[in-house]
């Protein structure tokens, strides 16, 4: 057994233990902490699977942002404690059996891969050069399967509107209920002043490097969103009211540009979402830049939650 496989076995064992305890542990807070740890471990697993793009996304969204959301929710639900009536033993047993069956079925399914493993990797590499991109994952996201990526942006907007729709009527158009510090905490303010510039540079770097190396609009956008949230939580800046025009414009800039370039492809490259020869790379970089901003705003507002206070006029 090579050292690498020792690492893999240890990592898998750790992931499974932490994952299982996140489900089984008694208090919700402990479970959420487990989940954050789990997210960190998972991004290592993605590195081991040679999927650095995904590792970046998982570290940023799976561990970081989701963890932040869950921690915030746990903090608030503590004052309104849900009485946790455990499900009865027979039912748990039945559920366990069912889940074991599903897991076993999946295990069997992946244990016997098809004889020549089908892959699109050569086809992607063959068709990537005209786009000028060096990162095959970006190629799939923005060239070959651009429609999915575009629709996914719409999904994000709808989810945001869904979150906003949970506001009380009078608070519509107001500011989100992201919890901020009661007293200004000097340590936190220090962090919120020092980390965001670094984070913003890194976020922009992620977006820019995404064309040729792992990275891209999602990862960059998430970093920017996180920095924004940090500044808000520290009380250095207020969360924007959801009715603000600039906020709405930023939210749609990315999808609108994407859609516009897609429609332009209809005229100049005779297919929707096709890029005219020779212009692919600059167009994609422009789309990614705009999307980074839109994603940052959308993720940040998603994490900030529905508006709770009417906007002061």
């Amino acid at each position: 057994m090579s050292i690498a496989s020792v690492f893999d076995v240890a990592l898998v064992a750790l992931i499974l233990t932490i994952g299982a305890s996140a489900i089984l542990v008694r208090t919700a807070f402990a479970a959420v902490v487990m989940f954050v740890v789990y997210g960190l471990l998972l991004s290592m697993a993605w590195v081991r699977l040679h999927a650095v793009d995904v590792a970046l996304t998982e570290a940023a969204i799976g561990g970081g942002m989701t963890g932040l959301l869950l921690l915030g929710a746990v903090a608030r639900s503590r004052s309104v404690n849900v009485d946790s009536v455990r499900v009865g033993y027979p039912l748990r047993l039945a559920a366990g059996a069912l889940c074991a069956l599903v897991a076993a079925g999946l295990a069997v399914a992946i244990f016997y891969p098809p004889a020549p493993v089908p892959t699109l990797a050569p086809m992607v590499m063959e068709n990537l050069p005209p786009s000028g991109l060096g990162n095959p994952v970006a190629g799939v996201l923005f060239v070959f399967r651009a429609l999915d990526t575009l629709l996914e942006k719409v999904v994000l907007l709808l989810a945001l509107l869904g979150v906003w729709s949970l506001a009380p009527d009078h608070a519509w158009g107001g500011t989100p209920g992201l919890q901020v510090y009661a007293r200004p905490d000097p340590t936190l303010i220090f962090l919120a002043q020092l980390l965001p510039p670094v984070g913003i540079v890194f976020g922009i770097y992620m977006c820019w490097v995404g064309a040729k190396d792992p990275g891209g609009a999602f990862q960059g956008g998430t970093v920017l969103a996180a920095m924004w949230l940090l500044v808000i939580v520290a009380g250095l800046q207020k969360a924007p009211a959801i009715g603000r025009l600039w906020l709405r414009v930023l939210l749609v800039t990315g999808p609108v540009l994407f859609l516009a370039i897609g429609l332009a492809g209809w005229v100049f490259a005779d297919a929707f979402l096709a890029y005219p020869a020779g212009y692919a790379k600059p167009l994609i970089v422009a789309v990614e830049a705009a999307l980074t901003l839109s994603i940052a705003v959308a993720l940040g507002m998603l994490a900030a939650g529905p508006p709770v206070r009417a906007q002061q006029q």
């Binding site: 970046l56 570290a59 970081g64 963890g67 932040l68 921690l71 915030g72 746990v74 903090a75 990862q219």
Partner: peptide, 21 residues
């Protein structure tokens, strides 16, 4: 290494969320 940077950037967030609570 970019993944490491990402982890380092987000490592502080759990503590921030906790202390906020």
């Amino acid at each position: 290494m970019d993944v490491a940077v990402m982890l380092a950037l987000f490592a502080a967030f759990a503590a921030v969320a906790f202390v906020r609570d």
